[in-house]
Design a protein around this nucleic acid. Structure first.
Lengths: 190, 190
DNA sequence: TGACAAACTTACTACTTAGTAAGTAAAATC
DNA sequence: GATTTTACTTACTAAGTAGTAAGTTTGTCA
């Protein structure tokens, strides 16, 4: 008997990775089991249904994001540094086997995933937007960012564009992703 | 015996719709057959493999886009009108049962679709970008658009953002999609 | 030391998947 | 009018899917 927490965490890690690589309909319990060297039923023991597994992955992601943004390491950064940190999350995904944003992956397949997952995705997306909006707002007030319109709309545009850019990079290469990030920064220049 | 062209076209219409609704891994030959009131094998008669069907959908989409942009209806428009026409394509997708961009849908599942499809998606994405870049270039030269940096990068950002915004709208509603489009226009204002 | 519970395996079910081979009815072509 | 071609249906196959029930091993704790 190995430690509970390790098995469960390893499954979540693999599921998260597969979600961002192949999509929810693109991986199966058999893939996870094979990779871990266990049987299918072992995965069902920890996560009875695929919906349970998907929900757990997103819930963990949400918790992690909340922890990050409330950590002084991020909280005390300047708006520009906060934005750079934000972009670096996506740059890291691109570097990590060309993964895409969890939210984008699930929203592309939104109408063929369980409802419980849809609700979880909605929650995560709102949290990402809210933080980005606050960061853009703070940056404009302190005069380091410049843009027209509502911070909420600018946040929606920037988040959509990095989400889309990670997908674009799969067909057109990493350079295209970097171009989008650079353009997004350029469009905030005072 | 019904007409060849009608059957084939009906299958393509349904497949395109399902691709933009559920994703490549989210629909099956059985779905199409049931909807059309025929048997599975009838679909295989027209498109031997699912890869053949997917390729045909994207090839038709590429042909359609080429026809549109070379038609005087679009070719003779002003840069602003061209951009509005471009955005209207995506607005129409959103109105049509919350569909997403074909390219975004396939790129989200890129690593779990056949290689022949990947190549076709790459081609389509390049064509979309090329046209948008030319339109932005023309608009900046004639003084109706204003932006920093390369037109190619601005095109990549705008295309990524509408692609991402259609996905975002599935979780957060149509208003969010419209907000992104308005912000994109605002960011081009002279 | 014995009961219990955690973390599995074995062995399975019911269903869906893409894909095929052989047959059939009707339309088009010679 | 006979032959061929088109557009299917019928009837499969082999593989993969999520999920379950019952048994087994192994560590923990009273």
């Amino acid at each position: 008997m190995v430690k509970i927490e390790n098995s469960k965490r390893t499954i979540l890690n693999l599921a998260e990775s597969l979600l961002q690589d192949k999509g929810f309909n693109g991986f199966s319990y058999a893939h996870i089991a094979a990779e871990l060297g266990v049987k299918n039923a072992a995965i069902h023991y920890h996560f009875p249904s695929k919906e349970d597994l998907g929900r757990a992955v997103i819930q963990r992601y949400r918790d992690r994001f909340k922890l990050w943004i409330n950590n002084t390491r991020v909280k005390d950064l300047s708006p520009q540094e906060k934005l750079d940190w934000f972009f670096s999350i996506y740059t890291d995904m691109r570097s990590d086997k060309g993964k895409v944003c969890l939210v984008g992956s699930m929203e592309a397949e939104f109408n063929s995933i369980p409802e419980g997952l849809q609700a979880e995705v909605e929650g995560l997306h709102k949290e990402l937007l809210k933080w980005l909006e606050a960061t853009l707002s703070e940056g404009r007030e302190t005069g380091v960012f410049k843009f027209n319109g509502e911070p909420a709309n600018k946040a929606a545009l920037i988040l959509s564009s990095v989400q889309g850019a990670l997908q674009m990079a799969r067909a057109l290469g990493t350079k295209k992703f970097r171009d989008v990030v650079e353009q997004a920064k350029l469009d905030l220049l005072v």
